[in-house]
Design a protein around this nucleic acid. Structure first.
Length: 556
RNA sequence: GCGCUCGUAGCUCAGCGGAUAGAGCAACGGACUUCUAAUCCGUCGGUCGCAGGUUCGAAUCCUGCCGGGCGCGCCA
């Protein structure tokens, strides 16, 4: 019996109580959940339904709880129901009802944890979106890990997701990039406002290899060559490093296309129809203050040029026109000032800024060695790059470390910690369970212990406290995936996996819960049952790590 | 000044209105003739920044204040 099954049993019981007592059935919620109490004295699961309904139904909480407990305790799979405190229902399951979960998880395999919670939602998820003027640096790295994990999470929760990388290969940033390459190719120092770092020289050399005559051209023509070739090389490099990091975008969207297709004008026209455009001081303004922004924003400057914000508007409209009903954009903390104008912009289009546009803000990351933030990078000069991260920690640890914390908190990633092979390194702790479960399965096979047919499975033998704890942890997985997806918080998956890992290690270390028979003891049904539990654990750990883009090794 | 965000154990951080607020590290003490001790168990450790409010119930929601970080261009 899964927590979801139990919750619907509770709801059914509540309905029966309401009917019997002549209460208004429409007061009952559509769905309910059961909690997993921290205190084992409070049973396997707890329901707060009696307290939530008591006031509405006009019945004392404990009286309602008593009626519910009575109704519930006769249902199959339920061992006991107690009333506690102001009206908690503390429920214990039969060992057999709880143990069946091990089989269900194994049989579901990769499907275990997938839900339809977000079914029908079309979500566009934009992250990283760095312009091709240099390697992906530290801010983008966090979003590469978190954004990619979130995309996997949203898909697991049933959403239709498109991931997107937005970039601009024109404009003044790129001009500075081109001038920096040109200068480097001529052996000159970087321009005052240019880009530094060894990668500039590398790219410049590569441009010269592709276009050997570039320096013989006039300055303007040469700059154009360096711009076009440099962007091409830089972008290929960005894509490659993301690729090696396990992050693949569905769409790489170039801002230039918005201009070429006249989408900025189209967005402006649309906003004008909606009545939020002003002409002032020779410029065209979007009256974002209509929807709570601090000040109105210019779309087209008095010199006729479009602003960056105008492209943002066009890009948003483009995503909506492509059928995405939820546009999610992940930005660094230094961009949080954009939230107001972006939300207002969505409202100006006639959208609901609460549901159609979500802006997620990620705080900064430091890579730390011996308590000191790493600032210097051979490649980039001043910033930490994706490669720096991967060189220091490896892909798995980098992804896990970045996805483990709420994006709301600034984090220091300690190199020594995340490369250590011990309990205090969370990725090791979790991956070790993957390896341990695989090892146990190998050992079992070697001594002729197999799970056998599903019909041979005796779930009631998984009655030890350690087994029960592990089963309860495994049962939480679908709810964790669903809520992490809804809240856009992949770190919940990592934290949950650490909990499962702890429960497994305690199970494994319990002499009374050996999977393999000891010495020359015969193989019994309890060994088989524990092998089901072992394999169910491996399934959950592997599925969860996959959501984070982290491997589940068979050996370590 | 305005806005956003954070404030939980000595440190790093969990905790989508539920019961006695948790984990790891650090400190101290235990467990390998037994499936990987890469693990496990125990002890110590708290004014959940402060003050009000909402609620049967608040670390969680609301308001104000204090403290840290960040942002406030016809820049990109």
């Amino acid at each position: 019996m899964t927590p979801a099954d139990l919750a619907s049993t509770v709801l059914t019981a509540a309905r029966a109580v309401f009917v019997t007592r002549g209460l208004d059935v429409s007061l009952l919620p559509e769905t309910t959940t059961v909690e997993r109490p921290r205190n084992p004295e409070h049973g396997d699961y707890a329901s707060t339904m009696a307290m939530q309904l008591a006031r509405k139904a006009g019945v004392a909480p404990r009286e309602l709880a008593a009626a519910l407990a009575d109704e519930l305790s006769s249902r199959p799979g339920i061992k006991s129901v107690e009333i506690a405190g102001p009206g908690f229902l503390n429920i214990r399951l039969d060992a057999a009802a709880a143990g069946v979960l091990a089989r269900d998880v194994v049989l579901a395999g990769q499907e275990y944890g997938r839900t339809d919670r977000l079914a029908g939602q079309r979500i566009n998820l934009e992250f990283v979106s760095a312009n091709p003027t240099g390697p992906v640096h530290i801010g983008g790295v966090r979003w590469a890990a978190v954004g990619d994990a979130l995309s996997r999470l949203l898909r697991a929760a049933g959403a239709d997701v498109g991931t997107e990388y937005y970039f601009n290969d024109a404009g003044s940033q790129i001009d500075r990039f081109a001038r920096s390459l040109y200068a480097a190719a001529q052996g000159e120092p970087a321009p005052e406002d240019g880009y530094g770092g060894a990668y500039i020289a590398e790219i410049a050399t590569a441009v010269l290899a592709a276009a050997p005559d570039a320096l013989k051209l006039g300055r303007d023509e040469a700059l154009e060559v360096f711009r076009v070739e440099g962007v091409k090389l830089m972008f290929a490099e960005i894509r490659q490093s993301l690729d090696e990091f396990g992050v693949h975008f569905d769409t790489y969207f170039n801002e230039k296309d918005l201009h070429d297709r006249g989408e900025l004008q189209e967005a402006l026209d649309r906003l004008r129809e909606q009545g939020h455009i002003d002409e002032r001081d020779g410029a065209t303004w979007l009256r974002t203050t209509d929807f709570g922004d601090d000040k109105d924003r210019v779309l087209r400057k008095s010199d006729g040029d479009w602003t960056y914000f105008a492209a943002d508007c066009a890009y948003y409209l483009d995503k909506r026109k492509r059928g995405f009903d939820r546009v999610v954009i992940m930005l660094g903390a230094d961009h949080h000032g954009y939230i107001g104008r972006m939300k207002a912009m969505a409202a100006c289009f006639g959208d609901d800024p609460e549901t159609n546009l979500e802006i997620l803000i990620g705080q900064l990351v430091n890579l730390v060695r011996d308590g000191e933030p790493l600032r210097m990078s051979k490649r980039a000069g001043t910033v930490i790059t994706l490669e720096d991260f991967v060189d220091a920690l490896g892909v798995d640890a980098t992804r896990y470390a970045l996805a483990r914390y709420s994006s709301d908190s600034p984090i220091d990633i300690d190199i020594a910690l995340w490369t250590r092979a011990s309990r205090d390194n969370p990725v090791y702790y979790v991956q070790y369970v993957a390896a341990r479960t695989a090892s146990a399965a190998r050992q079992a096979e070697a001594v002729g212990l197999t799970r056998g047919d599903a019909a041979d499975f005796h779930p009631e033998l998984l009655a030890h406290e350690k087994e029960n704890d592990l089963l309860k942890a495994l049962g939480e997985y679908p709810a964790v995936v669903a809520s992490a997806a809804e809240l856009r918080e992949p770190h919940r998956v990592a934290r949950y996996l650490e909990e499962v890992a702890g429960a497994y290690h305690r199970f494994y270390d319990e002499p009374a819960c050996r999977i393999l028979p000891k010495g020359d003891e015969p193989i019994g049904p309890a060994n088989r049952a524990r092998l089901w539990l072992n394999d169910a654990t491996r399934t959950v750990i592997a599925n969860g790590l996959a959501l984070l883009g982290v491997s589940a090794p068979e050996r370590m």
